[in-house]
Design a protein around this nucleic acid. Structure first.
Length: 106
DNA sequence: GCATTGACTAGGG
DNA sequence: GCCCTAGCCAATG
């Protein structure tokens, strides 16, 4: 468990239920705005049950992966009150979390 | 330690 | 709005 990895996990755990964050947002909050790729990589191997990886989705509202249990991820998100479409989240901007506080610069 | 990969993102067609 | 290309970071082989 590297420092960056645990930091990313901490950020993911900060995501409130019913809200979602993009990989970019998580990376920014973790201190590495340019490491969204690595964030995805970390999520891929996240074995931590306390880490709601399903609340981390793509910038366009795409669910991403979840290792083949993508429909499970959809179910979890829907269970939290999030309207999820077939391939992406609906009302994405409304449920997105962390962007305003992140102050991401480009 | 180098090379490849991947739950990504932004831009152009 | 979807498909392809280029760039970036950490993890893994």
């Amino acid at each position: 468990m590297t420092d960056f990895r645990r930091r990313v996990i901490a950020v993911v755990r900060r995501i409130p239920a019913g809200r979602v964050a993009t990989y970019g947002d998580v990376a920014a909050l973790a201190g590495r705005p340019r490491a969204w790729r690595a964030v995805g990589n970390i999520m891929r191997g996240c074995n931590d049950p306390a880490t709601p990886c399903h609340r981390v989705i793509g910038a366009a509202g795409a669910l991403g992966g979840y290792g083949g249990n993508l429909q499970l991820k959809r179910g979890l998100l829907r269970a939290e009150g999030i309207d999820v479409g077939v391939t992406r989240v609906r009302r994405f901007h409304a449920i997105r979390w962390g962007v305003k506080s992140a102050t991401k610069r480009r």
